[in-house]
Design a protein around this nucleic acid. Structure first.
Lengths: 199, 199
DNA sequence: ATAGAATCGGAGAGCTTTCTCCGTTTGTCT
DNA sequence: AGACAAACGGAGAAAGCTCTCCGATTCTAT
């Protein structure tokens, strides 16, 4: 992967400017339109030729990664930082709500977190695994102190996170309040009293 | 729209056979591959020319409706039937879980319930409104008896349903248990520890 | 100012998808 | 059996997408 950010040779001024501009436009376009936005459309909005976009980002995945990878890394970092927090329950639910709050307004970020639906994390990276591992640790601690239902697996939480994201995104689109995470968290919480059994 | 199911003139035997076959194949293809399945692919799997598929179903929407509309009508009918049930809380949660259970294994049905993501309900029909109204009624009754959080709007429940569907579908894909609906319902349930002050 | 390299822009190749058209085949009716 | 309408099938038009190519342009260094 011949990147161009090293000190090998400084980019020409116009190239640097265009790269920045494309990144900026792609950021906005992906947030509002999701992963399905086309390169032609990004080029048009950025006011450059499509060839220029491809020179800086050889594939669609490369562009998407450049824009979104950092956000997901942020979630992983958050989870790690919280994995030694004093109140394990608070750490788990806080992280969950935080991810939903931050990712919901960004269509492409949601699409990406929804691995399997089209584009997924880069194959060479361990990011998906890192996220899963960090989440699993947070969950395990919260379950150990009895804050979260014991019958939940990390994968279940992952799926609930995706679902919650979908719900929250919709609610956001119609101007609704940000309450989906709270409700789902309530559902994951261990029942302190007798379980209501059946429906 | 010149339909061909009325008694105007009976379909020729081969036409009838092909129509049935296409419907059958489309049913399966939509369930497993979702709304993005192509007509060419359906024609190929049904062993007929693509022209034949288009003769029976003039647009993609027409085919999708022929396959899925009944399912959604079923959900509406269920909701109506339950809207006078004795235990309003049980009725609400039961309906919610039932819809999730039935729709989750069907990719296209989930896609469709997720209105806004691509194809939506037919414009001329009142189905979307009917569904919303039936759900609203179920919800209102369940809230009146204190079974469901009072701060939930019908739209919130609709969004939670979609999110739950997304989560459940994923869980299903990896062979997980059917538990997402239970968790989300738990989250929607009014906390008994702090009763809604009653009347 | 000018040469030369780096970068640009967008036409277009190659693919997929929806949907149309019409020559050919098949069923039906007498 | 034979005639005629109904139905078939698949080539291909139109549109959209990703990605490539290369002549034209713009920057940089001397």
């Amino acid at each position: 992967m011949g990147d161009d950010h090293s000190a090998a040779r400084p980019l020409r001024a116009d190239a640097r400017r265009n790269r920045e501009r494309v990144l900026q436009v792609a950021q906005e376009a992906l947030a509002s339109d999701g992963l399905t936005i086309s390169f032609d459309e990004i080029a048009r909005r950025a006011g450059v030729g499509v060839g220029t976009v491809y020179r800086h980002f050889p594939t669609k995945e490369a562009l998407v990664e450049a824009v979104l990878l950092g956000r997901i890394e942020g979630f992983v970092a958050d989870a790690r930082a919280l994995s030694t927090a004093e109140d394990a329950g608070r750490a788990f639910f806080g992280w969950f709500a935080r991810v939903v709050e931050q990712a919901a307004p960004n269509q492409a970020l949601c699409d990406m977190l929804d691995a399997g639906s089209g584009m997924s994390l880069p194959p060479g990276s361990t990011l998906a695994g890192d996220l899963a591992a960090a989440l699993a640790r947070l969950l395990a601690r919260a379950q150990r102190v009895g804050a979260v239902r014991a019958d939940l697996a990390a994968q279940d939480v992952h799926d609930l996170l995706r679902g919650c994201l979908a719900a929250e995104r919709r609610a956001l689109a119609r101007g609704g309040a940000v309450r989906m995470a709270e409700i789902v968290c309530e559902g994951m919480r261990a029942r302190t009293s007798a379980p209501p059994a059946a429906f």
